[in-house]
Nucleic acid binder design. Structure first.
Lengths: 232, 232
DNA sequence: CTATGGCATATTGTATACAAAATGCAACAG
DNA sequence: CTGTTGCATTTTGTATACAATATGCCATAG
């Protein structure tokens, strides 16, 4: 995102462990509600318990783990309410990002976004879902970057990671997919026109649709992710 | 905020240390930019370095500390831009809180808020600034509670703590104070009338005024808090 | 047969010892 | 006199040992 300085930035062991765990959680290798045994995990990751515990603290702060005193850490199991709450906040953040982006966007930014939009249309035409997700994410990241608010970006990414831990396969049927792509087209138009209110409305609406899809997908699978649900 | 369950919840050592450090930072006993020596701090807090380092990780996640690999932790020194960014996000969050509160508020809540408002008017009439701040905070906390969004509340509190670490003495002159009190009156009226748009507008405007006051106060003091500024 | 109490085991919490890295100073070369 | 290199010291990073707590099982009383 910056690219102007080159600190070598070796990862410290707790950071590396946290990154690895984050991936394991988001990829679903560590299921929601799973209890994390310190000794076992530290052996699997090849680090001692001390840095692992620091990693736990970081992930707990991100809301990916919950730590119970003397009872260890477990992967968070988001309740329906948690998901609703997180999406509501995400909506507010996206709305802000839209308004800020309108205030700060340059023509070069718009040009870049149009390129991404074209890529998205291609992925859509080719029915290439992974590519679509990738470009989709790139567009939203780009918007946040244009907004130029570090606190916003940070908060947004953290919340996003927490929701990704759900591993929802948002059942994206053709109709929804078509709509989503056209919404993105409208977003870029609104941004190019410097129409903050319109962009805000589009982003919030877009997210509300996603929220509904995720909540639906939570209903349509085993209730494991609901609060209190632990496997036998 | 909940009050329906009574887990004894002894604080674990890292949590206790984090809480203590948080207070030291917010109270200004640990100045922005101050370097935190692990051995010395652990002795002063009466804990060993292990739980202290976990506390560091928690506070770093909250944005109260920054940790540099192999170079320790230091109290965050917010730049002007950081403050602007944080307030922008706070504004979006407050706006959301207002809309949610309107959707979920009960008449009992409104009655409670009117009591707090009366207390605020008293503090204002008596020119009792500490009491005013206390009630002010209580009102905003209450609004967030009514909004009933745990993620929102959490995010809001974290950002608030980070800004409090600035130790700004928002130069509250009589005119501004009068305005602030009347704004609160309007807020409660908007909430009672279930007028979400009006409440959002009031909250966002209220916060923007605060942001301006804080940024001004940052200008009017030594530039210690600005990025790169380290004492001789 | 069920429920309670106590003990053995496993797991987390904390302190400390050791390793690795950074810092500051001093000696030296230019 | 200035800048650089190497060493001693300080500080952070990691592993491990020990302490405290929780968990689960079994014996026993009702």
């Amino acid at each position: 995102m910056d690219g102007s300085s080159f600190p070598i930035a070796r990862l410290t062991l707790p950071e590396a462990a946290a990154e690895r765990l984050r991936a394991l959680i988001v990829e679903g290798d560590l299921a929601p509600g799973a209890k994390l045994n310190e000794r076992e995990l530290s052996e699997r990751l090849g680090v001692s318990r001390t840095p692992l515990r620091e990693a736990f603290r970081m992930l707990a702060a991100d809301g990916l783990l919950v730590q119970l005193p003397n009872r260890g850490a477990q992967v968070v199991a988001l309740s329906r309410e948690d998901v609703r709450d997180a999406f509501e906040v995400m909506g507010a953040l996206e709305g802000l990002a839209g308004e800020l982006a309108v205030a700060r966007v340059t023509d070069a930014d718009v040009a870049d976004l149009r390129v991404l939009q074209a890529q998205m249309e291609s992925a859509h035409a080719a029915r290439d879902l992974p590519a679509y997700y990738r470009v989709n994410r790139a567009i939203h990241d780009r918007l946040n970057a244009i907004a130029g608010n570090a606190v916003l970006g940070q908060t947004y990414r953290t919340l996003n990671a927490r929701l990704h831990a759900l591993r929802f396969r948002s059942n994206l049927n053709p109709a929804k997919w078509d709509l989503a792509v056209s919404e993105h087209r409208s977003m870029i138009a609104a941004l190019a026109a410097r129409d903050g209110a319109a962009l805000r409305g589009l982003l919030v609406g877009h997210l509300r649709a996603k929220q509904q899809a995720v909540l639906d997908s939570m209903d349509n699978r085993d209730d494991k992710n609901l609060q209190g649900g632990t496997e036998p």
